[in-house]
């Protein structure tokens, strides 16, 4: 059954990744997985790296490897601000495997309460999520 649609914008610092009417958007907040339909109550949430799914219709689904970010739903409009959102066919596995190895190495070297350690941990989560999207 077709759902009613709502406008969605997905923005990164490099520009707009998606803008249009969708039936549902599915991602992962700091609390857990979330799927938004039209008429959802107002929301502001942090996002963790995962696979972002945009349902233009039930059969027309766009997938992205999504980095950390935020989602805001207000007045039946959704806005996603994410550091990166990359379609799976543009993900270069070897690049992210190298980055993952480097981040794991940094994590081992950096002092535990340092900013470098925290950043390496964030990067590892991001690259692991990207690789799992590429593998799917």
């Amino acid at each position: 059954m077709a759902h009613s649609k709502f406008p969605l914008e997905v923005l990164t610092p490099e520009g707009e990744v998606f803008s249009g009417e969708v039936e549902m958007v599915s991602t992962f907040t700091g609390v857990g997985s979330i799927s938004l339909l039209a008429g959802h109550e107002a929301l502001l949430a942090t996002l963790v790296p995962t696979e972002l799914r945009i349902y233009r219709t039930e059969d027309d689904v766009l997938r992205f490897a999504q980095a950390e970010g935020y989602i805001q739903f207000a007045d039946n409009r959704a806005l996603l601000l994410v550091e990166e959102a990359i379609p799976p066919d543009q993900l270069d596995r070897s690049v992210y495997e190298t980055k993952l190895t480097e981040s794991r190495h940094t994590l081992q070297q950096a002092p535990e309460d340092s900013e470098e350690h925290a950043r390496a941990l964030r990067d590892i989560r991001r690259y692991e999520a990207f690789l799992s999207v590429a593998a799917a």
Binding site: T29, G30, V31, I34, E41, A42, L43, L44, A45, T46, Y70, A74, D75
Partner: peptide, 12 residues
């Protein structure tokens, strides 16, 4: 409108 925050406004 009432707003749902995940996890909470301070953490966000």
């Amino acid at each position: 409108q009432p707003v749902e925050y995940e996890p909470d406004p301070q953490t966000i």
